[in-house]
Design a protein around this nucleic acid. Structure first.
Length: 263
DNA sequence: GCAAAATGTCAAG
DNA sequence: TTGACCTTTTGCA
């Protein structure tokens, strides 16, 4: 379930579980054998996340992981389970094991190579002092639909399909309106809300964007299907106006919105 | 048993 | 804009 919140959560978790420890690394699946050999025996000195990119620091090397659409990490306390399925990377240290399966990227990088990845990324609302003005300026310069811009990792890093749909709904914004047709104040509010939602996601370990009063069951933990306003709610009534939620395709990704609230 | 879907990205045309 | 790729889970035969 990898949008930015997942990656930042993993960075913190990995630091807690194996930070400062010498690790043993292997690649039962074989597709990361060389990389695992490079890391094996080194100590994890730091972890870091920028958008959907996760980094582990081992001496002068970086492990770079991008989960893509299907990648997952699991972890636990020793003993580690027997390898099953396509296990790209296993790390063991500090009494814990980590398993990585299905990532788009799993590679060992130098400082320079890592720098080149970061240079492609826009500000990340989850980082300490993100360049909000850079985000606003990029959007105001672009004719592309706001929905497209929010998924562009060079505009804002860490937002994926769920946060995109939900934040646009929360601000009642038409997904198809060009970036440059927005007020700067609206874009600042959008950014602030993304920061709030992503932080909540890091804390909870899942994405919940609905206000209590807008859930079917206003009290208690939200049920899975109450967590969103529009994402994957095609044809269900909009929580605000009751109009069926609409979906469509934009840049090969599904987009969900309320045609009445978002104008 | 197989197809489809899933919170993503890149490169080719 | 399309297809390829990474892997697991779910749903339907």
């Amino acid at each position: 379930m990898p949008e930015g919140h997942t990656i930042h959560r993993l960075a913190r978790r990995h630091a807690r579980l194996i930070g400062g420890q010498h690790v043993s690394a292997d690649s039962p699946q074989g597709r990361f054998e060389d990389g695992a050999r490079l890391l094996d025996g080194r100590a994890l000195s730091a972890t870091d996340a920028w958008g959907k990119h996760l980094f582990h620091r081992y001496d002068d090397l970086w492990l770079h992981v991008h989960l893509g659409l299907y990648g997952t990490f699991r972890d636990g306390t020793l003993p580690a389970p027997a390898p099953r399925g396509a296990l790209r990377l296993r790390l063991v240290g500090g009494g814990h094991w980590l398993e990585l399966r299905g990532p788009t990227a799993c590679e060992v990088l130098t400082d320079d190579e890592r720098g080149r990845i970061l240079a492609r990324l826009g500000p990340d609302p989850l980082r300490r002092r993100p360049d909000v003005e850079a985000f606003v300026a990029r959007v105001l310069r672009s004719r592309a639909p706001i929905a497209t811009l929010l998924m562009d990792q060079s505009v804002v890093a860490g937002v994926g399909n769920v946060y995109r749909a939900e934040v646009l709904f929360r601000h009642r914004l038409d997904p198809f309106r060009p970036g440059r047709d927005h007020d700067a104040a609206v874009l600042h509010a959008l950014w602030d809300d993304l920061a709030v939602l992503l932080r909540a996601g890091v804390r909870a370990g899942r994405i919940v964007t609905t206000l209590l009063k807008d859930r079917e069951r206003p009290s208690g933990r939200p049920r899975r299907e109450d967590a969103h306003y529009v994402y994957r709610r095609t044809d269900l009534p909009c929580r605000i106006c009751g109009t069926p939620v609409q979906d469509g395709e934009i840049a090969a990704r599904r987009l969900y919105w309320c045609p009445v609230c978002q104008v």
